[in-house]
Design a protein around this nucleic acid. Structure first.
Lengths: 203, 203
DNA sequence: GCTTGATCTGAACGTATGTTCAGATAGCCT
DNA sequence: AGGCTATCTGAACATACGTTCAGATCAAGC
């Protein structure tokens, strides 16, 4: 029996995306079948093709939507002028944003290689845009003396990796709240990019 | 025709592992078929089962072998007494070791969820052992005043993520040599765990 | 109340999967 | 020289895959 109560496009569409997101994050894109997704939604597999042309487009749509959200929210964020305050805003935003959607973050890092080359290029460009924002902060701070980093490009990679790593261990309800985690990470980031005045100069 | 020249266990076994490592790293465990591995080795698919009881055991064997190498080589490393020198040794070792075997590192992070629960537990225990070594260094340094980190556990997570991230961007033949990369990362790590004397104290 | 059209079912398509195994082959040992 | 046995082939097994589509179903519009 088709079209049982509430089984409309507006309902089923988001549910398909939600089920795919959850399952891709848990088992990986290649390991999840269209039939599993259909079962999770509570429909037959054929019905999925009302909402995506194919499995690949479903993955791409999830990743693209996520990257759009990321860039949009960072644009909407309060971004101070001074590099140091701006870097702090970035650190806190990144941790808060990532911890709010762990599954999307997970597949964004794990499933890139399952995108077709064209789709991969799109996502990669968006990622570069976001990470470029961090490097720009570091360059500005380096220029005006607020920071002292040997290589802004490498430093941006290092900081992104460090911040994104939070998602691998953080569990809601643990001993630290998200703001507390952000405090601790900001402390380390702040020192890592500072001029070194501790007397522990490199060899 | 079986047993053509050079097609012995000693030869084929390692080649099976090498092909599996390469293909798993490139396409992901779930996306690689036993027939692809066999084709890469130059053998029919049935022959693979002389070298592994099943596909899962092949993945586990690769990860287990990798973790054993990691712990063994870190044990064999020169490890100074003083926390600061010891941390520097860890940073340089980690970067050097990881960049020497990017494929093994890649599947060690990406394919954990494709392990059976029993196999996962084994790998996870070994990983904890390795990462515990870093946290111990941080705790020692915190105790004797060499470091100033708000939370040694989180700091160890943060540093591991930062160091492991090198593998995502480093390409041999780029503008920086491995020791130069290690220098730059060590500079950031050193500052991140130092007492803060820059006048940029937290708010 | 009838028609229309979006939505879903149920079944089928060809292909691919991991794994098994009887039989062929060929290097090694006596 | 001839047998042994590790090794590999070739084919088969049952099952699963992504995708398609004719037809059933039901909410909405007239």
């Amino acid at each position: 029996m088709a079209r049982t109560q509430g089984s409309h496009s507006d309902i089923t569409g988001p549910r398909v995306r939600a089920a795919a997101l959850r399952l891709f994050a848990q088992h990986g894109y290649a390991a999840v079948s269209m039939r599993q997704i259909a079962r999770e939604v509570g429909v037959q597999v054929g019905a999925l093709y009302n909402y995506t042309p194919d499995k690949q487009a479903l993955l791409f749509s999830l990743l693209k939507g996520h990257m759009d959200d990321l860039l949009e929210e960072w644009q909407a964020e309060q971004r101070p002028e001074a590099p140091r305050a701006r870097l702090e805003a970035f650190v806190r935003f990144h941790i808060r944003f990532n911890l709010a959607r762990p599954e999307a973050i997970f597949i964004s890092y794990m499933e890139l290689r399952n995108l077709t080359p064209e789709n991969f290029a799109v996502i990669e460009a968006l990622r570069k845009r976001y990470e470029g924002a961090l490097e720009e902060i570091l360059r500005d701070g380096q220029a005006d003396g607020a920071f002292s980093v040997p290589d802004t490009r490498l430093a941006s990679y290092a900081l992104i990796a460090m911040l994104t790593g939070v998602n691998t261990w953080y569990r809601a309800g643990g001993r630290l709240s998200i703001p507390e985690v952000a405090d601790i990470y900001w402390d380390m980031v702040r020192k890592a990019v500072s001029a070194d005045m501790s007397g522990n100069a490199p060899r």
